[in-house]
Design a binder for these strands. Structure first.
Lengths: 231, 231
DNA sequence: TGACTTTATAGCACTCAATGCCAAAATGGA
DNA sequence: TCCATTTTGGCATTGAGTGCTATAAAGTCA
């Protein structure tokens, strides 16, 4: 693992693992979110999420149970890593897109862009996403985390087409888009399609067709159109 | 052959509330799922879901805590009522549709049909859906319950267009459809659009357009059928 | 009536996640 | 050295959920 310096570690809910730009005051943290996450994911992967207790994670890391909960709000949150940073990236991508680019193209490109990962991160990501889309406790928790994602998309859509982000239009687009993204992720995490962004791209192109039955039929049988062409 | 009428997904996990077609053997149940649900929903509505403990529900119903868990697998499940029965109805609607009817029309009609409720049920349903779409613990749990829903839809789609129900095509359609349904439900539960099936219908028509930006713009500004303005 | 069977219930003990509180440890600065 | 700051760990508590067991209530059969 060559991710020595992970500087984007803004606290999700825990105050710990601060970059601490100024002088370090007080007692130094005895570990990091990344360190905990690595140990925990390893345990989850080997023994299963439910079968791994917080006590086991804590003792594997070398901290107390109480300290674990200062780094992560819950056992579930460990799997999500630095999800919040990605949320900011998505918003930037959506809001920064040229006004004349079609809405669904912007959306597709933005989601694809925010899900580009280096080869070194993919193995861990697959474990994360595999857990998120299969373990009931994590499937459940995902709905809460993805709510923020939907809000970002709904804001974008409302800004494009008018009306309130809470309205049926933006909400439907946002939640349907989330569905497409989740489908892509789940498919990628399950079988070894090593092309995550490709899956996302395909799912969103499909979504933008309105799921016409004939096109969908051809799409399933023959190989679906890959990205390549333009925006 | 006692559990003849318990085929498929009928039993959530609790053995109680059986219609008891044959003669009643053994001690009679001291309450019903409905009775528990009514008391519990009342408490949830007044005090909030998290602030209501299982002990309080049990004592309000007049049973022990342990007995509560024989009727419902969890506190969360109370809010979902007889969700499983609806699942069977959805499958029947989808599979029973004429083969030449367009796929997305079948889907829309099926979801609309399975969400028709009598005027007497609507108040309680609004409380249920309000809770499900706002309380974090229930938002989370909804993802697990809706997984079954998605499976049904994905099966239907795969049967129509070919390929595996696990494939990206059927999964994308299913999850996007779920998104549309959730958006419609949440909008209905929040503001008092008393037309639930109308909201569902609109969301699915929108989904089938592929969210073309221009059409969506007109759709939002000029009120579609009976939505309140600017919602 | 009195066994015997079946079913539902209550109580108890237990695990585990999560939270609040407080004392102790570690660190830099005055 | 004393002090302020920050992290840590232990302790107690709450609340969900589960397994086990004894008991209560009902019908059946002799």
């Amino acid at each position: 693992m060559a991710d020595v310096d992970t500087e984007g570690t803004e606290g999700v809910g825990a105050p710990a693992a601060r970059p601490s730009a100024d002088v370090a005051r007080g007692r130094r943290p005895s570990t990091t979110r990344e360190h905990i996450a690595r140990k925990a994911l390893d345990l989850f992967d080997r023994r299963g999420f439910d079968a791994t207790t917080v006590d086991e994670i804590a003792s594997a890391v070398g901290i107390s149970r109480r300290t674990f909960f200062r780094y992560y709000d819950s056992k579930r949150d460990v799997v999500w890593g630095e999800f919040d940073a990605e949320m900011v990236r998505l918003r930037d991508q959506l809001m920064g897109a040229p006004r004349d680019e079609p809405m669904m193209d912007v959306l597709r490109r933005a989601v694809v862009a925010t899900n580009r990962f280096g080869a070194g991160e993919l193995d861990e990501l697959r474990i994360r996403m595999g857990l998120i889309s299969t373990v009931p406790a994590l499937v459940a928790h995902s709905a809460v985390r993805y709510t923020e994602w939907c809000d970002v998309v709904a804001d974008f859509v409302a800004r494009r087409v008018g009306g309130s982000p809470e309205g049926l239009g933006p909400q439907t687009v946002a939640r349907a888009a989330l569905g497409a993204a989740m489908a892509a992720f789940a498919c990628w995490a399950r079988h070894d399609s090593d092309d995550l962004t490709g899956e996302v791209d395909r799912a969103f192109r499909l979504l933008a067709t309105g799921f016409d039955e004939n096109r969908l039929g051809r799409w399933v049988t023959s190989d679906p159109p890959s990205s390549s062409s333009g925006a």
